[in-house]
Amino acid sequence: MAGALPDGEPVPADGSLPDEATRDVGANGFAVYVHVPFCASRCGYCDFNTYTASELGGGAGRDEYASTVLRELDLAAKVIQPRRVDTVFVGGGTPTLLSADDLGRILDGIDRTWGLAADAEVTTEANPESVDPAYLARLRAAGYTRISLGMQSSAAHVLRVLDRKHTAGRAPQAAREAREAGFEHVNLDLIYGTPGETAEDFAQSVQTVIEAGVDHVSAYALIVEDGTRMAARMRRGEMPYPSDDVAADRYLAAEQALTGAGFQWYEVSNWARPGGECRHNRLYWTGADWWGLGPGAHSHVGGVRWWNVKHPSAYAQRLAGGVSPGHGRELLSAADRHVEDVMLRVRLRDGIALDRVDRAGAERALAGGLLEPAAWAAGRLVLTLRGRLLADAVIRDVVA
């Protein structure tokens, strides 16, 4: 379970924002994130804000959850009126533990409140074992256009280390079922560097993703978070810690295989076939506004960031009392927003204009082979493949 939230400054009871924050909401795009905090079981590496049935109190279960989210949406409608909703992303947890009807109710509520753009991208995450063809068909009929499935690996022994419950073949099969149900875009997530994973295991995982016919792949190095079951096992010496060298080798293998299959990187950890990029994430990465619905969800509108109380019971109780579920907020300075903009845009294939970064730091990165010379000549900072491996170091060096 995720750690404690920062306090920040208090959120007004009605959730209101400063006038300057609401003056031009959505001018650079507007997104809605919906957090669904339920999981059937907890994976050993996960520190997300999720809860199993035994960890929840009264009034916080799945059956009433959609109605609770809609109450927050009612509050949000009194605070802002964006021009339109460009993207919706339902994450978790395991959103597909809710019924397809409830996920449809939430989407319909967003549309009635703020209006979905005619070409809105609507994504839900899903665990492979939580969906079947009938469920996927109902979800597609409800208006969802994109699904992101947590595959992690095609090796059964790696899935066991990660405490994943699906079989090795279920994720690619679910991806094919989603395509057959009419989903326009399908993503499979991979995790690399798990203790016990071999180079052959990961190569087969990437090949399995390619053969599944998806148009988007996310691949992340395993990160061991404090407070997780995996971290405890590593401290006890039951399994080794991940290796940075192994992670770099896995990344290079993913790049080679995916590029060879027609994918292209567009963010350090994300590859897509042409037209398959996740528009929702691009809005995050390029400074758009978004409202996060659900316990622990974060929002950002006009330079104000706030976050909701974490526990589903506290979240439901606040809304039942007509009070904002916001736990705290911060008003970002122009300097704060600049730093965040650099941190995010440097990771993108589009890169960032050179006049937005520290020139001396950028020149060092260029000399070290971490930046594309052709992009530099055109006035932009774009990472090379080696630069992607060292993206965090480049970011530290070029933040002006």
Results as ranks from 00 to 15, higher is better:
4 A>F: 07
5 L>C: 05
16 S>R: 13
18 P>D: 14
19 D>N: 12
21 A>M: 02
23 R>V: 14
33 Y>D: 03
34 V>I: 10
37 P>S: 02
38 F>Q: 04
40 A>K: 09
41 S>K: 01
43 C>W: 01
45 Y>I: 04
46 C>L: 08
47 D>K: 03
47 D>P: 04
50 T>Q: 14
50 T>V: 15
51 Y>R: 03
52 T>E: 06
54 S>Q: 12
57 G>N: 04
58 G>R: 15
60 A>V: 08
60 A>S: 15
61 G>W: 06
62 R>A: 14
63 D>V: 06
63 D>M: 02
67 S>W: 02
67 S>V: 08
68 T>V: 12
69 V>A: 14
79 V>E: 06
79 V>I: 13
79 V>D: 04
80 I>S: 04
80 I>R: 06
88 V>Q: 11
91 G>T: 11
94 T>A: 11
96 T>F: 05
97 L>S: 05
100 A>N: 07
100 A>F: 06
100 A>G: 12
109 G>W: 09
112 R>K: 10
112 R>S: 12
113 T>C: 13
115 G>C: 10
122 V>W: 10
123 T>W: 01
123 T>V: 02
124 T>I: 11
127 N>R: 06
132 D>P: 00
135 Y>I: 04
136 L>G: 03
141 A>Y: 01
143 G>S: 07
144 Y>F: 15
144 Y>G: 06
146 R>V: 10
148 S>M: 08
149 L>Y: 02
154 S>G: 11
158 V>A: 02
160 R>T: 00
163 D>W: 00
165 K>G: 11
165 K>S: 10
167 T>K: 07
174 A>L: 06
182 G>L: 11
182 G>N: 12
183 F>L: 04
186 V>E: 00
187 N>C: 06
188 L>V: 03
189 D>I: 01
191 I>G: 00
200 E>Q: 08
201 D>V: 05
209 V>K: 12
210 I>G: 10
215 D>A: 05
216 H>C: 01
221 A>C: 05
223 I>L: 09
225 E>K: 14
233 R>Q: 13
234 M>G: 04
235 R>S: 14
241 Y>R: 09
241 Y>I: 07
243 S>H: 07
244 D>L: 07
246 V>K: 12
247 A>H: 05
247 A>Y: 01
249 D>Y: 03
249 D>Q: 15
250 R>Q: 14
260 G>M: 02
260 G>V: 00
261 A>E: 03
262 G>P: 10
265 W>N: 12
266 Y>K: 03
267 E>S: 13
268 V>T: 11
270 N>S: 11
275 G>A: 03
275 G>L: 02
282 R>W: 08
287 G>P: 05
288 A>L: 00
295 P>S: 02
298 H>D: 08
304 V>G: 00
304 V>S: 01
309 V>C: 04
312 P>E: 04
312 P>F: 06
315 Y>A: 00
322 G>V: 15
325 P>I: 12
328 G>F: 01
330 E>K: 04
330 E>Y: 02
336 D>A: 03
339 V>L: 07
341 D>Y: 08
344 L>A: 14
348 L>R: 13
349 R>W: 09
353 A>D: 13
354 L>I: 13
362 A>V: 03
364 R>K: 14
367 A>H: 07
367 A>C: 02
369 G>K: 02
370 L>P: 01
373 P>E: 00
375 A>E: 05
378 A>Y: 09
380 R>F: 08
382 V>A: 14
383 L>R: 09
383 L>V: 13
384 T>I: 10
384 T>N: 13
384 T>W: 12
387 G>N: 05
389 L>E: 03
399 V>S: 01
